[in-house]
């Protein structure tokens, strides 16, 4: 499944990565190399096989419903590129 610059642009948009036109050709070529290698998967006969998401098939441990996490606002807000009045700041969001 070869991918072209349009597919690359679509994936880049979904991943919120900016890919300049100058990079697309090179990037498409690299991605095609990778996907070419990955396409070996199509050889496998897996019709009767269940997908495996985790190596150890165990179940989710559940936590008691208790408040254990402290207020860390004063510690984490300084890590933010922009904050004000206890909020993280971003350019205006239009809904």
């Amino acid at each position: 499944m070869a991918i072209d610059s349009k597919v690359v642009a679509r994936a880049a948009h979904l991943a919120r990565l900016r890919v300049d036109d100058s990079e697309t050709a090179e990037l498409s070529a690299r991605l095609n190399d990778i996907l070419g290698m990955v396409d070996q998967l199509q050889q496998a006969d897996v019709d009767q096989v269940e997908p495996l998401a985790h190596p150890l098939e165990v179940s989710q441990p559940l936590r008691d419903d208790r408040v254990t996490e402290p207020d860390v606002r004063d510690k984490v807000l300084p890590l933010a590129p922009a904050s004000e009045d206890g909020c993280f700041l971003v350019p205006r969001v239009i809904e």
Binding site: M1, R10, A11, L14, V38, L41, Q42, A44, V46, V49, E50, P51, L52, A53, P55
Partner: peptide, 19 residues
Amino acid sequence: LSAGYYDAYYKRAQKVRRL
């Protein structure tokens, strides 16, 4: 992971993972 490729790639890879 994108629509139309999930089965061909991701799901298939998870199946190979089991093998």
